[in-house]
Amino acid sequence: MIFHPAIIALLLSSFLITFLILYSSYFGLRIVRKWDIKSGSELQLNLERRTYLISTILAYVLGFQLFSLFLYIYTADNLHSLFVGAMCAAGTLNVNAYGYPTLILKVVNFLLAGLWLILNYTDNRAYDYPLIKKKYVFLLVIALFVTAEMIIQTNYLLRLKADVITSCCGSLFSTDTRGITSEIVALPSIPMKIAFYLGMAFTFVSGICFLKNSKLTGYVFSLASAVTFIISIISLISFISLYFYDLPTHHCPFCILQREYGYIGYLLYITILGGSVLGMGVGVVMPFRDIKSLSEILPSIQRRFAIISLVLYFLFTAVVTYRIVFSDFKLEGY
C-alpha cells in the first residue's frame, strides 16, 4: 500500500460509511419485521424514532458519497506520477483490476442513496408512511452495494504499488486498444452528437409533457433521463471531452476535473448526476401515486423533482453546447 494521506482518508471514510449503513440496516431490518403504525406500543415508538436516525444517516452518506467520488478521482489523478505510463487518473485507476469497479460503484451508490432519500422524502409526507417497508428493504440492498464498494476500494488501494507499469488515457481512451472504452471512443462523432442531443431533447419533451398533464409520461421521462445519463457519460468520453481539451485524440473523462480546465468537470458531473437522480426519482415514486395518503401530495413532489432535474440537464447541455459552438477546435466529422 502507498501511505498517502488521501488514501488513508478514502479508506477511513469508506469504513465509516459502511459502518453507518450496516448500523442503519440492522434497524431497517427490525422495522421491516416489526413495524405497525396502528400500535402505540413502546416498540413502535422506538422504531419510529429510529427512522429519524436512519434518514439523517442516509442524508450524510449521500453527501459523503459525492465527496468521496471526487476525492477518489482526484487522488488517482494526484498519484499518477508514481506509476510508469500514467498521465492522469485514468492510468492510476488502471493499475489494478479494482480501480474502475470502485469508481462505478461509487457512482451507483451515490445514485442509490439519492433515490433512497427521494423515497424517504415522499414517504415522510404521507401520514401513514405507506412506503416504509419498501424503503427499508431497499436500504438493505444499498447496504450490500456500499459494503461491496468498501471491499473493492480497500482492495484497490491496498494493492497499489508504485512503479507498476500501466496504460493511461492516451491508450485507454483511444481506438487502438480493445475493450469497452475503445469502443466508445471509436464511436463516430456525428451520430454520437445526434444521439446526445436527441436524448436530451426527448428528456425535455417528455419532462414538459409530464409537467403539463402529469400522467403516465412520468415513467417515460424517468426512463429518458436514465438513458440520457448514460448517453451523456458516453458522449463525454466520445466527443465532449475533445472540445474541452482542444485535442482530437484526448478522450479522458477525468482530466476535465483539473485546474487547467477551470474545474469545469465538476459542474458537468454534478449537474448530470443530480439531474439523473431526480429524474429517475420521479419514476421510482410513480407507482405510489394511487396510494390514498400520497395521491394528493405526490404529483406536486414529482413536479418539483422534474423541474430541478430538467434545470440541471439544461445546464449540462448549455455548457457543453457553448463549448462546442465557441471553441476554436473543430472536430472534423467522421
Partner: peptide, 8 residues
C-alpha cells in the same frame, strides 16, 4: 390523530 406518526 392517534395513529399519526410523531412528525404529523
Amino acid at each position: 390523530v392517534t395513529s399519526l406518526p410523531e412528525r404529523f
